[in-house]
Amino acid sequence: MKVLMLDPVKCTGCRACMDACSFQKTGVFNPFDSRIKIFTFLEDLTFIPTVCTQCEKPYCAEVCPTAALVKNPETGIVEFIKDKCIGCKQCVVACPWGSIKMDHSGKEIIKCDNCFGDPACTKVCKPEAITYVEVEDVVSFKQRGVAQAYREIGKEMAKGVNP
């Protein structure tokens, strides 16, 4: 099972992912219709990507009165079935992350579906702040980064410890 992995440290704040997402979903460019969002903190020039993380216990689906949101156990995606949606916006209220939202018209619910396995956002992310990886690799990649930093110290410390 693959997930979108976000790395705020690598994000350069270019927001191309937002334009790519809206183009993929609507055929036009509009960051208000993007499922992914980059927050820019200009005071210290920090950039934080946020996107639906496809919760294991999706509150959005739990509060939905028409079962328009369903967790697919196979893909892990919390799927949105547009035809069933009545626009009550309870999912928007329930999501702790603000990852399910209204589109630019303020009328339609939109949420990330990982482009069903081929996410558009990752294709324009040159610094690889957004990647699409196997779920078990997410933590492993992070640990590898830390381990790399520890590598030289580890080599140094091992001298005289091991025979």
């Binding site: 704040g13 270019c14 191309a16 020039l45 324009v124 040159k126």
Partner: peptide
Amino acid sequence: VRNEGCSDCPIACGRVTEIKEGKYKGEHGG
């Protein structure tokens, strides 16, 4: 500190920097 990319830029040549020592220590910007 990090790279910064302008809108939709894959190059991200922008520098976010900080002065780490001396009399201007702590000053930061682009």
